[in-house]
């Protein structure tokens, strides 16, 4: 299948460097090629959504963007700087540009909500206790959660955990936000609320967003551009309205939620 990576619907910006560039990324786990030559570019301020079946390599790709996994081959360029070739100290510096929200929140269960959101502030800033508390309140307000600072993470519902995860991700005012399956396991109403929060965060914060999801409804709500990942390759990239009308039979089946015979997730 031709890789129609092409930047259908992409606004050419006369040579301005992309915020994130992925060049020919390959990764193999236990003899299985999970990523097979991924190329993509995300512009500053853009909300880029990568969709695909379970096992298509979405999470692995997202973890490469922030350097949690090193590729076998290829490069991840952040603001013109090659994350894959940076030493440990430099890659920690580059990571400070990121905020990441994990699938189940990945909240520290040894801390309450306040401790979780305050954690990056305490590690990386010299803010006073009052300033940190104020910033935590501000982040929680942005995700529409107020008065939960003293709750243990075990007391939170799935949707609340995601939102606390968002609040923690934005605490250090990152330039890039990564969302790993923000809607997985949530009911449609809560899922809609989460999408709303993501859209609002984008409006209020000057950030570039990359989200991976298999939920097309959510993708259409939050994306500027959508890329389809299949068997470790990007098979199409398009703006949401153009994405719906792509002729690729696999994409049409994916949109319609119909089974594809040759693939078992």
């Amino acid at each position: 299948m031709a890789n129609t990576r092409g930047d259908a619907g992409r606004v050419e910006q006369g040579g301005s460097a992309p915020k994130i560039a992925v060049i020919d990324l390959w990764k193999t786990f236990a003899g299985r090629e999970v990523l097979r030559g991924i190329n993509l570019e995300v512009d500053a301020g853009e909300s880029f959504v990568i969709v695909g079946q379970s096992g298509a390599g979405k999470s692995v790709l997202l973890k490469h963007l922030i350097g949690l996994i090193a590729p076998d081959q290829g490069h991840v360029i952040i603001d013109g700087e090659d994350l894959t070739n940076s030493d440990a100290a430099r890659s920690l510096e580059i990571r400070r540009k990121f905020g990441m929200s994990f699938q189940e929140g990945a909240l520290f269960d040894s801390m309450d909500v306040l401790g979780n959101i305050a954690f990056p502030l305490m590690r990386h800033t010299r803010m006073s206790g009052d300033e940190i508390a104020a910033r935590v309140r501000q982040c929680l307000a942005l995700v529409h959660l107020e008065g939960v600072e003293r709750k243990a993470t075990s007391e939170l519902s799935g949707g609340m955990r995601r939102r606390v995860g968002f609040a923690r991700a934005i605490a250090l005012q990152p330039e890039i936000l990564l969302f790993d399956e923000p809607n997985t396991g949530l009911d449609p109403i809560t899922s809609g609320v989460i999408d709303g929060v993501i859209v609002e965060m984008r409006e209020h914060l000057d950030v570039t967003m990359v989200t991976i999801t298999h939920d097309m409804k959510s993708a259409f709500r939050i994306a500027d551009r959508i890329a389809m990942l299949r068997n470790g390759q990007i098979i199409a990239t398009a703006r949401p309205e153009a994405f719906r009308s792509l002729a690729d039979p696999y994409i049409q089946k994916f949109l319609a939620g119909e089974p594809v015979e040759e693939e078992v997730a």
């Binding site: 990571r95 590690r123 990564l178």
Partner: peptide
């Protein structure tokens, strides 16, 4: 296994 260690990396904390 609950990605809390990945979350630390992601927050630029070794």
């Amino acid at each position: 296994v609950t990605e809390q260690i990945d979350a630390l990396y992601a927050m630029a904390t070794e």
